[in-house]
Design a protein around this nucleic acid. Sequence first.
DNA 1: AACGTAACACTAACGGTTAGCTTTTCCTAA
DNA 2: TTAGGAAAAGCTAACCGTTAGTGTTACGTT
Lengths: 196, 196
Amino acid sequence: MTVQQSGRRERKKAATRQKIADTALRLFLERGYDAVGIRDVAAEADVAVTTLFSHFASKEALVFEQDEDFERRLTRAVTDRAPHEPLVPALRREILALVRHCTADSAAPIWRMIDASPALRKYDDSVRLRHAEALAAAIAADPTLTRSETAARTLARFVIDAYSLSREAPDPEAALDEIFPMIEAAWAAARPPHLT
Amino acid sequence: MTVQQSGRRERKKAATRQKIADTALRLFLERGYDAVGIRDVAAEADVAVTTLFSHFASKEALVFEQDEDFERRLTRAVTDRAPHEPLVPALRREILALVRHCTADSAAPIWRMIDASPALRKYDDSVRLRHAEALAAAIAADPTLTRSETAARTLARFVIDAYSLSREAPDPEAALDEIFPMIEAAWAAARPPHLT
DNA sequence: AACGTAACACTAACGGTTAGCTTTTCCTAA
DNA sequence: TTAGGAAAAGCTAACCGTTAGTGTTACGTT
């Protein structure tokens, strides 16, 4: 049983992970994602290739280092909202915040790089689907919502679609203004679950 | 200028492509997707590895050989529907047909294989997104639909979501019965485009 | 102080994919 | 009919992400 660690080990591990991520992002932005190899990143971060892969599951994952934050924020928008606050407006607020975060000037070079690389775009797609599943689980777990599993999953997909479509739109916030009324209507039309 | 070919070349090319696809699918189903290498497929189909990759962009593409059919059927459901037939019911009919096609017993082993392989699932996700874009373009091009570009893209995503969610559901057709009323409501709530 | 183990390193390989180049096969225009 | 052009296919050799196998170091515990 491992209990009560002083923390040096954990801190060193976190530092290694961060150094790898920082180095990777810097090299990718300097030379382009495709022009930088895993061996380059490992050498520049002064770690072994195997160490790099013990911290990140793939080369693409180096770019999406903080996607767990994204997922947590989404599910918390469901679970931590004020009592009796309607679901969809809460999700809309969170998606708006996330879209603003992604379209901020500081994040622009990263997203330009992602858009330029088919591998990264594909990875982003699959990440979004994972987030949709997590969101669906959070929605389905809310006892105040009397909707079926299928409706929960559907709403989750639609909300993630809103995020993705908004990011791609020329005017992201205007796109959200257009998409979320559609989602509201869809959610209102969702049937309650069958009681068997 | 190249014009008027007898067709032997094209037929041979199509035959080679088909032989590769058939061999690949057979080997994948016999031994498992991960257990069969590209070199195995090429050898068994009696072609060079480079030839294989001149017909298929990736190993995963071997499994999704006919995804262009899928895309064509979707866009035609929009463009070839009866005059003044409402859009969403037409799409619903087509999605239902496609879901039935995928969940038929004959297709079951293939989809079991896809579900078992993360690489194939990921590829399927990206294929669906491509189809959503094609569908969005078809919807946006219909002059009888007075909706914005964003609304068209949103509807396309929702429809593709319906397909994907339905395929994964325990009762696919019941899922469609639940999801499409939501899509109807969303489409009804979509704003007409701004006239500038 | 000694042991267990998590983190990291090293080498070598595997498997998908591509570049570079040659050969074969088909089409067409003289 | 044939010569020339080009598409299709072939071969070799490599690139690059990723992993297996096997130590080694550094930390935490007993």
